[in-house]
Every structure is written in C-alpha cells, then in structure tokens.
Design a protein around this nucleic acid. Structure first.
Lengths: 193, 193
DNA sequence: CTAAGGACTTAATCTAGTTCAAGATAATTC
DNA sequence: GAATTATCTTGAACTAGATTAAGTCCTTAG
C-alpha cells in the first residue's frame, strides 16, 4: 500500500509542500482489515482517524437491544471512525468493521495533534473535509423526514451503484432506517414495475 | 451590539492575537432581524455566514408541497446559515428566519475568504466548529432511527428547556420529524402521567 | 454429502405516526 | 372589542413500516 491515494485526496483541497507531505506520510500507519474484522470497537477509546485506501467498511451504532444501526459505508477515498471518541478520547459509541478485505491508513491521535501544531496548513484540509461532511449529514436528516423509504432506496442505489453487490441488504436497510423485511417488499415492488 | 460574545466564542477554541481579533471584528456586519423576518431565503445565493448574538432563529427546508422542515434552532452563541450555498455560491436550499427579534453578526463570503487567507489561524477555529457540529449531526441521525417520537420530545425538552416558551409547537414537531397533531398527543400523554 | 448457520423473502398481524376534519384558544388587526 | 387569522387540540379513519414467524436459498464446515 502506498500513499498516492491519500495524498491525492489531500491535494484536492490544499497544496502541501514536499516537506509537509513527507511529514504527513510519516505519521500514517498502514492496516489491513480482513472481511468481518474490526477497525475499531465501541466501548474502546479510538486511537486513530481512518482513511480507506481500498475495500469497504461500515461504521455503526449498536443499541441496548443489540441491534446495529449503520451510519456510514466507507469505500476508497473516504474518512471514517468515531470522531467524538477520537477528539475527546472518550469510549467510542460506534464500531467500524470491514465488509470486504480492506486496506486503510490510520492517523494516530497524537500524530494528528502534532501534525496540526507543526504544520497548521492541514487545518484547512480538515476544515474543508468536515465542512463538506456536515453538508452531507444535513441533507441526510432532511431526506429522512421528507421522502418515503422507497424513494430513499432508489436514491441510495443511484448514489452508490456498486455497493449493493457486496454489502448485505440488511445493512443497507439499516442505513436507510428500515427493516430488512420492508426493504425486501420495496425491492419486489420496484422489480415488478 | 458589541463583539464580546462572538470573540469569546472564538477564544473557546483558539487564542487570536490582538491584530487577528481586530481584523476579524472588522469584517463583521451587524444585523437586526425582527420576529418573522428572514436572515436568508432559499433560492437566493447566501452571501453571509451567520452568528447569533441574541434572540432565536430557525433554519428550515421548504419541500415541493410547501411544507417546512426545521433543521435547526439557533440561539445566542450558535452559527447558522446554508453552508453549501455559502461555500459554493449556489442558490440556497434552506431559509433562516427569526422566531424572536434577534441580533446577528454576518460574515460576508469574501471577508471570510480573505480572513482565512490572511490569518490561517482561524482555519483551526472553523475546523473545530464544523467537527463538533458533525458529531452532533451524526447523533441526531442515530437518534431519529433508534428512539420513539415521545422519547425524542422528552430529550429535546431536556436539552433546550427554554425554547418551548417562544417557539411555536408546530416547528418543534417539524424539528422532531413528526406532525403537530401527534406532538399534541404526546404532550397530553406526558402531562397525564 | 450432510448439517448448520446466515441472508433473503413472503405473508399475516400489528402499531406508531399520518391525514382529515372539526373545535377550542390564543394572538393580531382594524 | 369584534372580527380575523394562526396555533393548538381532539378524535376517527387510515397507512407506512414494524414485528413475528415460517420458509427458501446459499455458504461453509465437518
């Protein structure tokens, strides 16, 4: 695994110097996560912020009844992890698990702090990253309250056309905020059209 | 209206120099918004990022049937506005309107760009602002899918105890993702307990 | 090859929350 | 201060989606 992808992702928003890029690369830890394995577990304090180099992971919340609620699927080029746990160093409420064999870069909490202190240029990158993510999250809140589950599923498929091929439907149902049974109904209805 | 509140809000996360503070204050525009008036309208391109100095505003989305969906209530100390419209300079999808007579500070888009270029120190402030907001939004998505409307209302009242006194219930219902009629039922049920 | 578990579907029943329609209360306006 | 308009409540009928339970189809392991 090389740093091409993650550095390219950064260069979309800022132009780091050679020195900055080199330092940034030096704090990264590579990790291979096999299908079904955890990149991070709820209850444990998150030590890393995660960049997905290849593969696919999901971040989810497990409620008191043991039911999982998917917050995000992260494919190549996405960042993920439990942001609150990472920044405040409190036990994580979310878990992140690989849906396919995946390769990720880890940014350790301490490395991140030192990076931002030494090269504040990266503040801009993360400002833009979080800002864009915030816009996406606002849209999702609106969507959940304005359109039906069927419509949400149709839009999901349009937005992530390949995901359905390797993500179990029950997790897609969870992401959409419905039960697998109801997703099944929707799929039958749509295919019969 | 003076800049004490907004500067204090910034000092919670960064320590700007006297020069930086002064420059920051110089780009701010004060605005008084009377109850019912708009700070910004959907369809128009947002020119300002908004800091609430006093009063209360709500940011909402109006769907194709003309129904409003409240995204956020913003009281003193909060930032608001249509972030996507502001950063990409595209027509806003959200509107922001005053629920009580309010005083806000406006940061013009151009002033913000120049501020961040001239004093990148502020990147850190907005990075933290967006990062925290992101955590809040993630929690809201989870909450919408895991607990009942009644539970959401109870938590809302606990989190914003004063809001109910001056925000019409129909907007609180919208924020909670339910109809005013159903909120009415919930309230009767709770008060009867 | 067979057993066992996970993923997906189907169908019946149920419920949280919506819709519609009518009244009751308050707030504004003239 | 009566009239108008908006907000809130109530109740009956309805529906999107949940729950429960059974059955099918795959994998994977022994």
């Amino acid at each position: 695994m090389n740093t091409n992808s993650i550095l390219a992702s950064i260069r979309k928003h800022i132009k780091p110097s050679a020195e900055e890029s080199e330092y940034f690369a030096s704090i990264l830890l590579p990790l291979s996560v096999k299908q079904g394995e955890f990149a991070e577990k709820s209850g444990e304090t998150t030590r890393y912020f995660i960049y997905v180099n290849s593969g696919c992971l999901m971040t989810y919340y497990t409620d008191k009844d043991g039911d999982d609620h998917v917050i995000q699927f992260s494919t190549s080029g996405w960042w993920t992890g439990d942001l609150q746990s990472f920044t405040e160093q409190v036990p994580a409420t979310y878990s992140t698990r690989a849906l396919t064999d995946s390769e990720v870069w880890l940014i350790p909490k301490m490395g991140m702090d030192q990076l931002l202190e030494k090269y504040p240029h990266f503040e801009k990158f993360f400002r833009i990253l979080f800002q864009n993510s915030l816009v996406t999250h606002q849209k999702r809140i609106i969507l959940a309250g304005t359109v039906t589950a069927e419509e949400r599923y149709i839009r999901f498929r349009k937005k992530y056309p390949t995901l359905e091929q390797y993500v179990p439907l029950k997790y897609i149902a969870s992401y959409l905020g419905i039960t697998p049974e109801f997703l099944s109904k929707i799929r039958r209805k749509i295919s019969g059209k």
